[in-house]
Amino acid sequence: MTSSMTAFARVQIQEDWGSLVWEIRSVNHRYLEPHFRLMEQAREIEPALRELIRKQLKRGKVECSLKFQLVEKEQVLDLNRVLLEKLQLAVREVEAHFSRVAQVNPLEVLQWPGVQSNEETEMAVVHRAAIKGFNTALIQLNEMRQREGQELQSFIEARLDKMGDEVQRLRGLLPDILQSQREKILDRLAEARQELNPERLEQEMVILAQKMDVDEELDRLETHIAEVRRTLKSSGQGAVGRRLDFLMQELNREANTLSSKSIHAGLTQTAVNLKVLIEQMREQVQNIE
């Protein structure tokens, strides 16, 4: 399924411990490039968040912002008494080996990792909620990317239809264009009052036909148009934006060749119309994953 790289998602979670808000924005980029704006308390979950992104997205610059607010409540200290006893034994052992040891500051002991177990338990709950919320936001982001991708696909398919019409119209015009050029050659010979030489006329027509031989270009245009359609409808093949970008280059190359072979206003106009359609598609392809 065709997906856009431009999307936005916002998820808010409200719990007894407080609230958190995820905002994710993605725009087009050649590769997958995630950026995180996290509060210091959430830095340790960043690797898990990056892994979730890698599993669900393939291309795009993705900016992820997390904000959370803990509920202010009466502070109840839940001390890890087992750890306190171990710290006490360690202090006594140090005092036994050294004569001058500064008195232990109880407030500094409270800052020792693991002494206040309730804070660690609460942050673990917040981290789990943050990861869950991030996954929900990614799902929403993907849904929006797919909706945008369907609109882009419809836009491109409409231009492909017009390109196909231009190619068919030009095929129908070629015999008339050739006949028109033949008449111009006859008129020039008549104005110059030169005797009509059938062999000379045949040579001129052969040269003219060679200059106007655009069958290969038209065939390749139709082939590339069909390949763009197939790529848009392909599923399970990952990101298709790069392939579509390559096909736009190929389409543009054939349109340029048509323009270089132009000796008639009808052929010139067709080449211009094709270039305009290709450029419109190319601009939209830049947003496809």
Results as ranks from 00 to 15, higher is better:
266 G>M: 10
3 S>N: 15
83 L>R: 03
193 R>F: 05
228 V>A: 12
80 N>C: 09
129 A>R: 03
150 Q>C: 13
165 D>K: 06
71 V>Q: 00
60 G>P: 02
286 Q>T: 04
80 N>E: 06
268 T>D: 11
42 A>G: 02
69 Q>R: 01
2 T>F: 05
8 F>V: 02
126 V>F: 09
97 H>P: 00
118 N>W: 09
262 S>I: 09
31 Y>K: 00
48 A>C: 00
39 M>D: 08
133 G>H: 05
190 A>N: 12
250 E>L: 04
4 S>I: 04
83 L>C: 04
253 R>I: 09
267 L>H: 03
268 T>Y: 08
160 L>S: 06
12 Q>H: 09
269 Q>F: 15
276 V>M: 10
96 A>I: 03
285 V>N: 03
258 L>I: 13
156 I>D: 01
260 S>Y: 12
249 Q>G: 08
168 Q>G: 05
268 T>G: 07
17 W>R: 00
50 R>G: 09
78 D>G: 13
236 G>M: 07
159 R>C: 10
8 F>M: 03
68 F>R: 00
268 T>V: 06
101 V>S: 03
20 L>Y: 06
207 I>E: 02
87 L>K: 07
181 Q>S: 15
270 T>H: 11
285 V>K: 01
118 N>Q: 13
109 V>L: 15
179 Q>T: 14
213 D>W: 05
257 T>S: 10
245 D>Y: 01
275 K>T: 08
203 Q>K: 11
104 V>K: 10
142 N>W: 06
212 M>N: 13
28 N>Y: 12
192 A>I: 03
255 A>E: 04
76 V>I: 06
155 F>P: 12
137 A>P: 08
49 L>I: 12
50 R>F: 02
222 E>W: 00
176 D>G: 13
97 H>T: 13
56 Q>S: 15
13 I>G: 02
231 T>G: 11
215 D>R: 08
218 L>W: 04
112 W>H: 09
137 A>Q: 04
140 Q>W: 07
247 L>F: 05
199 E>C: 01
242 R>P: 01
148 E>T: 06
77 L>M: 10
106 P>F: 08
179 Q>L: 10
44 E>S: 15
150 Q>H: 15
13 I>Y: 03
41 Q>I: 01
143 E>K: 14
58 K>M: 10
246 F>T: 10
50 R>N: 09
104 V>P: 02
166 E>T: 07
252 N>C: 04
213 D>Q: 04
10 R>L: 10
199 E>V: 15
